[in-house]
């Protein structure tokens, strides 16, 4: 199980990677492993405004459909179009090519409230 130390996490298993006030969002290695083979990812249109904690997409695995929650508030400025053709990218590269969306944060300090890799790993191990 990988816990990328360069991103921060929330307990619903999404991660955020900071680049100024732009944040790349995806789901953790633990999340993709629990879901199993991902067959479809439903993502919002560019321009959608989301609140922290709001469901902005759905990831469908062979097993089930699961909501994906925004770790930060802001505007979705980019969606990963590659997931349409190859949803299994989420399984293969959860912290890389399997990212979901990019959010222009309206309140970047929300990032500080997220869990570090060490904190998230401890949380996962307690599940």
């Amino acid at each position: 199980m990988t816990y990328d130390p360069d991103v921060k996490y929330q307990k619903s298993h999404e991660w955020a990677r900071k680049d100024g006030t732009l944040f790349t969002i995806g789901i953790s290695d633990y999340a993709q492993d629990s879901l199993g083979d991902v067959v479809f990812v439903e993502l919002p249109e560019k321009g959608k405004v989301v609140q922290k904690g709001e469901a902005f997409g759905v990831v469908e695995s062979v097993k089930a459909a699961s909501d994906v929650y925004a770790p930060l508030s802001g505007t979705i400025v980019e969606v990963n179009s590659k997931l349409k053709e190859d949803p299994a990218l989420v399984n293969r590269e959860p912290f890389g090519a399997g990212w979901f969306v990019k959010i222009q944060a309206s309140n970047p300090t929300e990032y500080e409230e997220l869990l570090s890799a060490t904190e998230y790993e401890a949380f996962v191990k307690g599940l």
Binding site: V39, K63, A88
Partner: peptide, 10 residues
């Protein structure tokens, strides 16, 4: 067993 490490699609 629902699946093994290879995953259900493989």
């Amino acid at each position: 067993p629902i699946q093994y490490p290879a995953g259900p699609i493989e």
